[in-house]
Amino acid sequence: MNISITGFILFFLLLVTSYPIEAKERTPYGYWIYVEGKSYKNIHTLNEHNYEFGYVCNNGCMYYITPSVICDTTKVIDGWLIQTSGVSKRIRTTCVKHEGETILKINSEKDLTDLLEKNHEVHFLINFDVEINSLLTFNMLGFIDSYNRINNQ
C-alpha cells in the first residue's frame, strides 16, 4: 500500500485528536478509525480539509458529515452522494446537535451502506443554499472493516 506523506500526517492527526480522551479504544482501519467510548461507538475519516464523515452508534446509529458552513438545526438540506463510477444518489441531511457539535445527519442508512461498500472514494455535494455548495471527498479505504467492527460482524 502506497500512502503519501500528507495522507500519513492526516491519518496520524485523525488518530490522536479524534474524539474525547474517555475513548476506551481507537483502532485504525486504512483511512478510517474505530472509536469506542463509554456510551458510543464511532467510525470516521477526515478529508484533506479536515471535514469528517462518519457513522456513530449511541441509542441508534446514523451517518454524518461535519458541515463546511454553520447550518440551522431546523433545516433539511439536500445533496448528492457521487460514487467513483459517476453514479449519484440524492440524499437529505438535517443539521443536528450531537455531543455539543453541529453535524449533518444523513437521513439514510442501509441503502447508503450498500453504496459506500462499493467505492474506494465518495463525494458529497451538499446544497446549503443557492450561493453555497460544498463538494466533500472522502477516501473509503478501511470503511468495510471498520463498519463490520462497529456492527460486531
Rank of each mutant, 00 (worst) to 15 (best):
L13D: 03
T113V: 15
L81A: 04
T74W: 05
C57E: 03
Y55V: 04
P28N: 07
T94Q: 14
Y29S: 14
I77C: 04
V16I: 15
I33W: 04
L15V: 10
N50D: 07
D111I: 13
C57N: 01
C57W: 01
G60F: 02
D111W: 15
L14P: 00
Y64K: 03
G37M: 01
G100P: 02
R26N: 03
I43V: 14
H49G: 03
E25T: 15
T45D: 00
E99T: 07
T17L: 09
F53L: 10
I106K: 02
Y51N: 12
K75M: 13
P28H: 07
K24Y: 09
I43W: 01
L15I: 13
G100S: 06
I21Y: 08
L112S: 07
K105Q: 10
Q83L: 15
N42D: 15
Y64C: 03
S108K: 08
N59E: 10
I106L: 15
I70E: 15
E22I: 14
T102S: 06
V87E: 08
D111A: 11
E109G: 11
C95A: 15
S108N: 05
Y19Q: 11
E36A: 09
S18V: 03
I65W: 00
Y63A: 11
S85R: 08
Y40A: 05
V96K: 05
I33P: 00
K38R: 13
T102H: 04
I106R: 01
T93Q: 04
S85C: 08
S39R: 12
V16P: 03
E48P: 04
T113G: 03
H98R: 08
E109S: 15
S18A: 12
T45E: 01
P20C: 08
I43D: 00
E48T: 12
V35Q: 01
A23P: 06
E101M: 13
S18T: 14
N107Q: 14
Y19C: 11
G100K: 08
H44G: 15
L81W: 01
Q83W: 00
Q83S: 14
M62G: 08
F53Y: 06
K110Q: 09
I21P: 10
Y64A: 02
L13C: 10
R26T: 02
H98K: 13
P20W: 05
G100M: 05
V96M: 09
V87M: 06
G30A: 12
E109L: 15
I106W: 02
G30T: 07
S88Y: 11
N50R: 09
